[in-house]
């Protein structure tokens, strides 16, 4: 039947076309906003009805890194993120090893406690600690910002390392014991080295989370201790389109880079943040 044979081909072509168009529209939806952001960050002039900026400049970036309070917020961000990464690692890694490796009474409760910050709305955490810091006159201090970020980072730090610890094969420990290594040696020579990728992923993730954190910082920081996202929000509010776009790009690029590196280590459910 020649009719059916020829009828199939246009359908195939139609389907392929449909898929292509759908993928293109979807790509446009995902990339569009980011492209606009990038364009604004280098736009000298971009007025309706022009499709694209009519002239370009890099001076918004120069601005962004020379204006004193922006520079200061960048320094704050780096300072806070470094402290948060170190402190969270020190706290989360031993806890994760304890949870992932040992059976003890109350293990389930402890595991659950560490995920409490993920169960309540992010803003609830924010208002909660903001009011505590306010009462304790900590609002606006670096300590407040660092502690706030640590609350957000701790569940992820614990989760990342715990899941790596649980993936360790118990026979490998046993093999080391059989070879004559005492438990302490097994820990330092066999267990810890196997966790290195997870520890790096944990540190990278926490650093990125702290750099990007906005909600909690907005609630507990002062202008002196504000981080880059808060500064960017201020610039947006004042209508400095190009400057806030440039700041956004400055924040976005390292985020994307680190995400690409971490993508191999992380599961989807670890991305949930307000």
């Amino acid at each position: 039947m020649g009719g059916t044979v020829t009828a199939v081909r246009p359908m195939r072509v139609g389907l392929a076309l449909l898929r292509g168009v759908f993928l293109a529209l979807f790509a446009g939806f995902i990339f569009g906003p980011l492209i606009v952001l990038a364009l604004w960050s280098v736009a000298q002039q971009w007025f309706w009805p022009n499709l694209l900026p009519t002239s370009f400049t890099t001076r918004w970036f120069e601005w962004a890194i020379t204006v004193p309070n922006v520079l200061r917020s960048l320094q704050n961000s780096l300072f806070v993120a470094t402290l948060v990464t170190i402190a969270t690692s020190i706290i989360a890694v031993p806890a994760a090893i304890a949870i992932g490796r040992y059976e003890f009474r109350g293990r389930t409760v402890v595991r659950w406690l560490f995920s409490v910050p993920l169960l309540v709305p992010y803003i609830s955490l924010g208002i909660g600690i903001a009011s505590v810091f306010y009462a304790a006159r900590l609002t606006g201090t670096y300590a407040a910002v660092v502690l706030a970020h640590m609350i957000a980072a701790l569940p992820f730090g614990v989760l990342i390392v715990t899941s790596a610890v649980e993936e360790l094969v118990p026979e490998v420990d046993e093999a080391a014991l059989a070879c004559g290594a005492a438990p302490t040696a097994v820990f330092w020579k066999i267990i810890l080295p196997q966790l290195v990728p997870a520890l790096l992923a944990q540190a990278g993730y926490v650093f990125m989370l702290s750099m990007d954190e906005f909600t909690l910082t907005l609630l507990v920081a002062s202008p002196e201790t504000a981080t880059l996202p808060v500064q960017m929000y201020g610039a947006m509010g004042e209508g400095y389109l190009q400057v806030s776009s440039a700041l956004a790009i400055l924040l976005l690029l390292p985020s994307l880079l680190l995400s690409a590196v971490l993508a191999r280590f992380l599961r989807t459910d670890l991305h949930v943040t307000g």
Binding site: I35, L51, D212, L252
Partner: peptide, 24 residues
């Protein structure tokens, strides 16, 4: 995966610009 790597604040801002009345 891409949107997951974009900080929420930046995503909000980028989308506001993209879908603005005189936006792209």
């Amino acid at each position: 995966t891409l949107p997951l790597a974009v900080p929420v604040l930046i995503a909000a801002y980028a989308l506001t610009l993209f879908f603005a009345e005189n936006g792209l």
